[in-house]
Simulated assay, not measured.
Amino acid sequence: MNEETLTINKTSWEEAAALFFGRNPLPEYGPLAPCEDELNLLGEVEGAAVLDIGCGSGHSLLYMAERGVKELWGLDLSKNQIHAAEKLLEDCKAPVHLFESPMEANPGLPEGYFDIVYSIFAIGWTTDLSKTVENVFRYLKSGGHFIFSWEHPLYSRVRLKEGTLMMEQAYHEEGPYDHEAWKLPAMMQQAKVSTYINTLIDQGFIIERIIEEVRLTEKDRERHSNRWYSYEKAKMVPTTLIIKCRKP
């Protein structure tokens, strides 16, 4: 766990939290990507105990509450995000447990307890992917599922210029990087698709689905015009990597 990077990222998120209130939560998995309504990765969640890694403003947890889960748990690096989630979820019938914590550490979460752990466009903020995945494996009960999404590793490595994709960073390069689309001082982690897969396997997970498809409707074109996740670029390279795996 890189304490210096976590401090930088926490400071950045405290400032940016309000800008991400309700941004792309479940049933969305990412910009221009298929949604849960289509994928049905979560399955039947009524009566389940769920944990949101990087819960942000709590809107994905609210989605889960509306589907009848038994317990809502979440953690996030940002105090401001946790406060926003607490307010959003204060009227939920299901018990809510939120922790201000990096995903690389266990802030007091029960082990062998959760039916579903998920992370929507957050896992790339970890400073230690192996430790984060190890934690998730411990949190889940046997047969429980881990479902996560993140920016596809190819997307930030290529640039669309006049209708042509140009490689700007070697795909083989991994590690911390300053994401061009993030305007505040912050470091995300770049990893190959194989790194995500092998890390999950090394920790004991069984991979069930890998999704790289995009969804390009007219509504998507309007929402993402002239933004980092552009419609034109998404026609050529996926924006989002989604993986579903299971603890034996």
Rank of each mutant, 00 (worst) to 15 (best):
E134R: 09
Y139V: 00
K161N: 09
G112M: 10
C35R: 13
N2D: 15
G163R: 07
E71S: 06
I210W: 00
E3I: 14
L77Q: 08
N135C: 01
H59Y: 11
W125R: 05
M188Q: 08
S156C: 10
G74S: 04
A65I: 10
L72A: 11
A94F: 05
W228L: 13
H224Y: 15
T7Y: 05
S130P: 06
L98Q: 05
E14R: 12
E44W: 02
F137H: 13
L32Y: 03
P176M: 05
S225E: 08
A186W: 12
A234P: 13
W150A: 00
H97Y: 12
H224M: 04
D178W: 09
M64E: 04
D76P: 10
P107A: 00
T11E: 10
A18W: 14
T127F: 12
Y177A: 11
Y63R: 09
T127W: 11
Q81V: 06
F146V: 02
T164K: 14
P110G: 00
Y63D: 06
V69P: 12
C92W: 13
F137E: 01
G54Y: 05
P248S: 07
F20V: 02
A48F: 11
F137Y: 15
S12N: 05
A49W: 03
T11H: 08
S101Y: 02
D115M: 06
P31V: 05
G163P: 13
K79Y: 13
E44D: 13
K131Q: 14
